[in-house]
Design a protein around this nucleic acid. Structure first.
Length: 273
DNA sequence: ACTTCTACCTGAGCGC
DNA sequence: TGCGCTCAGGTAGAAG
């Protein structure tokens, strides 16, 4: 489940494999995953281009090309970008295949096919999700002052609030639950009801949980892998996510799972108010 | 303008 | 062993 730390790990691991290499061929195996332009035009446009760098914004990856265009990629739940050597077996669930120079193959794989790719920067087309992202954790734009201001304006449950990419970019279900556990806030608390102290605790918790995820190379439960096919280790350090029924690391109470906005949410009924 | 719900998919895990 | 069911979760777009 790639969230900001996982996508950042993909960015870091992918860049050295493709930087400076040329796209010799592009085969789209599942056309509907290319959201813009039409898949044939996409393949034709990227062929012959050279990768300059790999950027990330929230959970979006931008594979920047030498003509100032960029391949936008969102991995959604089960997507992966894998850099393999020529001759290696085709990975399972391959959806897009880029043949690169220097005997490198770049594969976009995705079990559930929710992931998307698009070509930006050639015709003014913009991805609405990417265009509407809020500031991301650990950035200078994400300040306590900003968080307090938008918290006051929302009557949504705090869990839904921090999952809203237009408010804060990059948080998904894992880091949402972890942040709330760290800040000792119940996932159903109304956003506008947080005190100054609680908002400050949440601000620190979001930054700390995301930073910890990045230090550990991301969280792997099932499908997430970086460009080298490696798993992260942050799953060994989680407070609540995927720990339903297990003891709270602070007080020992059995963790509970409820639905908040349709998402599974694990929390400590004693610590989180 | 805001929040909430559902569709989009496949595979794993469960009970029977 | 195998069937049918539920669940997982990011986002767009519809519905409230």
């Amino acid at each position: 489940m790639p969230e900001m730390p996982e996508v950042e790990q993909v960015r870091r691991s992918l860049e050295p494999h493709i930087k400076g290499k040329k796209i010799l061929d592009c085969q789209v195996l599942l056309p509907r995953m290319i959201v813009h332009p039409e898949s044939g035009a996409f393949a034709q446009s990227v062929t012959g281009r050279t990768f300059k760098e790999v950027k990330r914004r929230g959970k979006y990856l931008l594979l920047c090309l030498d003509d100032e265009s960029a391949i936008m990629c969102h991995l959604r739940m089960t997507g992966a970008l894998l850099a393999l050597k020529k001759g290696d077996a085709e990975p399972s669930h391959a959806r897009v295949h880029f043949t690169l120079s220097e005997d490198t193959d770049l594969w976009f794989t995705d079990i559930r096919t929710f992931g998307v790719m698009a070509l930006l920067g050639q015709d003014g087309w913009a991805d609405r999700g990417l265009a509407s992202l809020g500031p991301e954790p650990l950035s200078k734009e994400f300040t306590l002052d900003y968080l307090e201001k938008i918290l006051k304006k929302s009557r949504a449950p705090i869990k839904n609030f921090i999952l809203d990419q237009r408010k804060i970019a990059g948080i998904g279900n894992i880091y949402a639950d972890e942040s709330l556990a760290m800040a000792k806030l119940h996932p159903k608390r109304e956003a506008s009801s947080l005190t100054r102290e609680e908002a400050a605790a949440l601000y620190d918790a979001i930054n700390r949980s995301i930073a910890q995820g990045m230090e550990n190379g991301g969280t792997t439960f099932r499908d997430y892998k970086d460009a080298d096919g490696k798993s992260g280790s942050n799953q060994d350090h989680l407070l609540v996510y995927n720990r339903k029924g297990e003891p709270c690391r602070f007080c020992g109470t059995a963790l509970e799972q409820i639905k908040v906005g349709g998402r599974g949410s694990v929390f400590c009924p004693r610590c989180q108010k």
